[in-house]
Design a protein around this nucleic acid. Structure first.
Length: 687
RNA sequence: GGCGAUAUAGCUCAGUUGGUUAGAGCGACGCAUUCAUAAUGCGUAGGUCCCAGGUUCAAGUCCCGGUAUCGCCA
């Protein structure tokens, strides 16, 4: 097999917060693939960096009273410690706030500019007059122009899902100073993505991105490629744009360049020099090396469109592969800071070893973009059963015989023994699964072999034979075979479990194993005394992790509490205004889903005898909170004299009263029974 | 609102181009075993393949509609 040259990256973590378990899915996935490639004997380099620029970092540093440089230095240290403790083996970890990155980003920009791919035009943007800075959408808060929900960000409403521009927000305030933002003009620089449409259409459909993302990309092409705003005004923590007065690169411009910068720094490090690493060999337009980016599915747009276009326009090679993965859910739910399901890498490490999580993620990772669920009960069961009960157990149950009865010496290993042959012959297939990043299937294959090894030992019953002195040679054979099987399995598992792999190598008295060592027979080899290679995961430890996360959730939730009204009382009205509204009790007699409507239910209400038996059809936006069948028979309050309104799905002849912040948190009003246990009936007027 | 992904056993997931009786691991239950970290082996139970319609000799798989969950919308 020829040696490949592969440069691998994971997405750059933002230097504004800690690494959490969701991040780790990606780093663990990438690390496994990288370790596998290295074990194959390929020249493979894994680089990453902190993504250190942008408004959030500038503001956070400001708030903490330190410089952005000090903030990102501190964060970088924490990130690297977390990665190291999860056995993520970067060859180099850098920062986007570095000389290499400044030079490369500027170089790329200047090349794009001289090729005519940069446009400049003036746009109007929200500006904080107190803080004297332009405000990103996320830093403007106000009431949703569509549904009126309070405390929404400048780009979309979390309550009703509407999207809008920050200027449409009602009662908008700057999240930085609380001042009312004003509109202000500024010249911005744009990268003309449309110049690359033909190239990108070809590039994205020729195997560089996963096919399941092709639909998504097709949508974007259909919508038309828009110019990309790549400049920001001062004050901004980032790189000044060459030739500009006071413009800075938008953080997403220099972030992917950070991949190159980190590799460049690697080339210039002692290790890089010693290995004769050459930057151009990997990044020049005609490079025959592979460049592989692992990313989350949320940043496909940047990596599959902007990034290759930038590289193409600046005369560099484009990526070989963009590999996207899904998100992590915890016990089936989205990770959430306020619900206590947001687990930091460090919290996990404080109570649990790293490798079981690596194994569990691997056991559920494939090459698709589906989400991955960390089910904690399943995690404990799976890890203990697979690793301790199956894999380690093989060594554990054979080693004592070898040590006690045969002085630690293995016999001649019969490589033709059917199970040994089968196990060793699986190497190419398992390698292909690793190569394709179908780690879940690789794990299944490996564990099926471990099952067979345990079956073999159970059938042979070495412990029974050992009672008869004359049968000791058989015991020796059986247990040596068991150790040999354990050796092969250890190599297969090593990309997933590097630390456990090292312990296995120490027990087997072997140097660091490569993939090709699967074929090494170990005949007559002396092994060391067996010591437990790993201990079982305790569910109490998981509980401790959850307790810490719950406490952090509390601390997170409290500063969120505000005394100020989020939903102030409306303007005063006259009694006559109120009297105009005819509110009636009505019984829901029918309720159905409405075909094609995401939020609406169709209700049929009986307004009772007092009204002469009026029936009304009303469409109510309560689908997210109620199943139709649960509503039938309920008595509720309706606005009976509201002018009927034609909706897409039919006439709505009134309004059902409901309260709540929205979404699932929505309650239809129902009359309560009084102290005498009686309740009002449909038709009664509300007064 | 637009678009996408997902829905299979109590849990976590496989199910290739439609093709016998829908599988695995874990969990449960029973038996065996004791070399091994209560580890292992053998066996049993457990499924309306989200719902409804359609194509077909044949649908978990293909088509249409719906529901739910998750995600994306530069």
């Amino acid at each position: 097999m020829s040696t490949r040259k592969i440069l691998v990256t994971s997405a750059l973590p933002y230097a504004n917060g800690p690494i959490h378990l969701g991040h780790l899915v990606e780093y663990i996935q990438t690390d496994i693939w990288t370790r596998f490639q290295k074990m194959q004997g390929h020249e493979c380099w894994y680089v990453c960096a902190d993504d250190a620029h942008g408004t959030p970092i500038m503001l956070r540093a400001d708030k903490e009273g330190i410089s952005p440089e000090a903030l990102i230095a501190k964060t970088s240290e924490e990130h690297q410690a977390d990665f190291a403790d999860f056995n993520i083996a970067f060859d180099h970890y850098h920062s986007t706030h570095s000389d290499e990155n400044r030079e490369l980003a500027s170089d790329i920009y200047l090349k794009l500019e001289s090729a005519g791919h940069i446009a400049k035009r003036t746009i109007s943007q929200a500006f904080d007059p107190e803080k004297q800075m332009f405000l990103p959408d996320r830093f403007i808060k106000g009431e949703c122009p569509k549904c009126g929900a309070a405390d929404q960000y400048g780009d979309n409403c979390e309550a009703c899902g509407a999207t809008y521009s920050p200027t449409e927000l009602k009662n908008a305030v700057s999240a930085v100073s609380g001042a009312t933002p004003i509109e202000k003009d500024s010249e911005h620089y744009f990268f003309k993505l449309g110049d690359f449409e033909a190239f990108l259409k070809e590039w994205t459909t020729s195997g560089h991105v996963h096919e399941s993302l092709e639909n998504k990309l097709g949508e974007w092409f259909e919508a038309g490629l828009q110019d990309w705003d790549i400049s920001r005004d001062a004050p901004y923590f980032g790189f000044q744009i060459p030739g500009s007065d006071n413009k800075y690169f938008y953080v997403w411009l220099d972030a992917p360049v950070g991949y190159m910068a980190s590799f460049k720094a690697l080339c210039e490090s002692d290790l890089g020099k010693q290995q004769g690493l050459n930057f151009d060999e990997y990044w020049a337009e005609d490079s025959d090396a592979e460049v592989v980016h692992f990313i989350g599915k949320d940043i496909v747009y940047f990596h599959a469109l902007f990034w290759p276009a930038m590289l193409k326009g600046a005369g560099f090679r484009t990526p070989s592969k963009i590999l996207a993965h899904g998100f992590l859910t915890l016990n089936g739910e989205k990770m959430s800071k306020s619900r206590g399901t947001f687990i930091k890498a460090r919290t996990w490490l404080d109570h649990m070893p790293a490798e079981p999580l690596r194994y569990y993620f691997a056991a559920k990772l494939n090459n698709g973009v589906g989400d991955l669920d960390l089910n904690l009960e399943d995690f404990v069961a799976r890890v203990n059963s697979d690793l301790v009960g199956k894999y380690v157990n093989i060594a554990s149950r054979c080693a004592n015989f070898i040590t006690k009865k045969f002085d630690g010496q293995l016999t001649e290993i019969n490589e033709a023994q059917p199970l040994v042959a089968e196990c060793a012959a699986a190497a190419p297939q398992i390698a292909e699964l690793y190569e394709q990043r179908d780690f879940a299937r690789a794990v299944r294959e490996i564990m099926a072999l471990a099952d067979k090894a345990n079956q073999y030992i159970a059938e042979q019953e070495p412990w029974a034979l050992a009672k008869d002195e004359s049968k000791l040679p058989q015991v020796h054979d059986i247990c040596s075979t068991g150790v040999r099987l354990f050796h092969i399995l250890s190599i297969y598992l090593k990309p997933l479990l590097p630390a456990l792999g090292e312990k296995a190598e120490a027990f087997l008295n072997l140097p660091p194993q490569q993939w090709s060592d699967v074929g090494q027979a170990l005949s007559g080899h002396a092994i060391n005394k067996f010591k437990p290679l790993m201990t079982r995961v305790q569910s109490e430890d998981i509980e401790k992790v959850l307790e810490v996360a719950a406490e952090e959730a509390k601390a997170f939730a409290e500063p969120e509490k505000k005394v100020e009204a989020t939903n102030p009382i409306a303007e005063e009205i006259e009694f006559d205004d109120f009297a105009k509204i005819d509110l009636r009790l009505a019984t829901i007699i029918e309720a159905d889903h409405v075909e094609g409507a995401d939020k609406l239910l169709r209700l049929q209400l009986d307004l009772g005898d007092e009204t002469g038996g009026v029936k009304k059809q009303i469409f109510a936006g309560i689908k997210s909170a109620y199943d139709p069948e649960d509503l039938i028979g309920k008595t509720t309050v309706v606005v009976a004299n509201l002018k009927p309104r034609k909706m897409r799905f039919g006439m709505s002849e009134g309004m059902v009263l409901a309260a709540g912040p929205g979404g699932e948190e929505l309650w239809v009003l129902e009359p309560s029974s009084n102290s005498r246990g009686t309740a009002p009936s449909a038709g009664n007027r509300v007064k």
